[in-house]
Design a protein around this nucleic acid. Structure first.
Length: 415
RNA sequence: GUGGAUAUAGUUCAGUUGGCUAGAACGCUAGAUUGUGGCUCUAGAGGUCGUGGGUUCAAGUCCCACUAUUCACCCCA
């Protein structure tokens, strides 16, 4: 017996309707927000993620599915959605097209980690990236889109927001951080000592108690923002309050991807029932396109984990509606197969969901089956019906039974 | 990478201080007279007790190793 690989999951026929519903919600948002889908490959050159996601990140350092292909190229299964989309944007010269460009994707992502509740080696992200806009409106609207997505499922998770500043204020802030940590870095955990060299910002994100204690007194980014950055953040907060986005400021929020500038955010499960409490996250990355070799283009975007969304809904006791229902089961009480098949085809040609008996079962067993698959109606087709052109239709929900003329069948089911 | 837990039927789980042909519930298949579901009743199929080794007269049960799963930490979706 060959088992499913570690950290992966089958979506079984009995639960796939949940995924169909997620896709339906995304289609609705696509129209409401005028998004366009972009599909990029499942794998890219490893270098893209090293440069895009950043080589001081855990994703790049220890979590990538990297291998050499037969042409000795280093290939990596995408660990997140943004880098590939940015690459495509540059490679296809989309910065020369009409901007802003608002794209979205639903894609599997791969990270080699130890699996646990809400964390898989293959997970699925719904993401959206908006190229060529750098405004409060865009920042607010991308948060509204993500928030709208969650609200479509009847939830309203808190989004933590923070502002990392433009490259100018960030430079000053990082220097301030270095000055602050330098005298006491020897008392901090080995990870933080490494972070001090590679990316001091991430020290703020440390979960070790001793480090957290020191972090409490660390300089706060808001004190180092230039007036532009400060005003913009204040204005964003005003807008979010007006439009009902459930946000909270968190000056410790850093996030583990290097490409962020200015706005960053993370949707969280505040009850922490998930274990992993990040439901989705994102922010602004105004330098990424340029760093990957494109014309300087501001971008804002997010990624939302679908598996975590479904887990969150389950924990909250929120059920996703299954709107797939079989309308008619065509039961067979005759040897005239041709007529059964033709009748079923007529129903389907009129967009009526229909299934016919495919087994040697008795009529009684066919009724049992129809009940089990939750058919709304059973239409009995026997020699009597075929001779008289009148069909017996039983409503399985209330048990009532009706005779319907052959030419009125469609009207009966559609009416 | 670090630490903890678990492994018995398709699923969820019982299985006592080691003791006869390993159980339940749900699910699945079929039947309860003539062409009608749900409820009920009856019957049936389905397990080398994760794998390998050890202790013992005797191992699902105790010990060891391996494998798999799972939870937590780090980090992230």
């Amino acid at each position: 017996m060959i088992n499913i690989p570690k950290g992966t999951k089958d979506v079984l026929p009995s639960e796939s309707y949940k995924w169909n519903e997620v896709e339906r919600v995304v289609q609705v948002l696509r129209n409401k927000y005028n998004l366009h889908e972009i599909k990029t490959p499942m794998f890219e050159h490893t270098e893209l993620f090293v440069r895009g996601v950043g080589n001081s990140t855990d994703i790049v350092n220890k979590e990538m599915y990297t291998f050499l292909d037969k042409g000795n190229r280093s290939i990596t299964l995408k660990p997140e959605g943004t880098a590939g989309v940015a690459r495509s944007f540059i490679e296809n010269g989309l910065f020369n097209e009409t901007l802003p460009l608002k794209v979205y994707y639903i894609t599997p992502c791969f990270r080699y980690e130890r699996p646990q509740a809400g964390r898989l080696r293959q997970h699925t992200q719904f993401g959206s990236e908006w190229f060529g806009v750098d405004s409060v409106e865009a920042d607010a609207e991308i948060l509204m889109l993500a928030s709208d997505f969650y609200k479509s499922f009847g939830i309203n998770p808190t989004v933590l927001i923070n502002n990392l500043g433009c490259s100018e204020c960030r430079k000053k802030y990082i220097q301030a951080l270095k000055n602050f940590f330098e005298p006491q870095i020897k008392d901090m955990c080995p990870d933080c000592q490494k972070r001090f060299e590679t990316n001091p910002l991430r020290i703020l994100d440390c979960k070790v108690e001793e480090c957290k204690a020191i972090n409490k007194n660390a300089p706060v980014i808001t004190d180092y923002l230039c007036d532009d950055c400060k005003n913009r953040f204040e204005e964003l907060k005003k807008v979010l309050t007006e439009v009902g986005v459930n946000y909270k400021c968190d000056s410790m929020l850093v996030r583990g991807l290097d490409y962020y500038t200015n706005l960053i955010f993370e949707f969280v499960d505040e009850d922490k029932k998930l274990g992993q409490n990040a439901l989705g996250g994102g922010g602004r990355y105004n330098n990424l396109v340029e760093e990957l070799g494109g014309k300087p283009t501001p971008v804002v975007g997010f990624g939302i984990g679908i598996e975590r969304l479904l887990l969150y809904l389950e924990n909250k006791g929120i059920e996703i509606k299954n709107n797939q229902q079989l309308e008619v089961y065509v039961a067979n009480a005759t040897n005239n197969l041709i007529e059964i098949i033709k009748l079923t085809k007529v129903l389907r040609d009129n967009n009526i969901s229909a299934e016919m008996n495919l087994t040697q079962r008795t009529l009684k067993a066919q009724f049992k089956y129809a009940d089990k698959i939750k058919a709304k109606y059973v239409m009995v087709v026997g020699d009597d019906e075929l001779n008289s052109n009148k069909f017996t239709i039983k409503n399985l929900e209330d048990g009532s039974q009706t005779q319907v003329d052959k030419q009125d069948l469609i009207k009966y089911f559609k009416g």
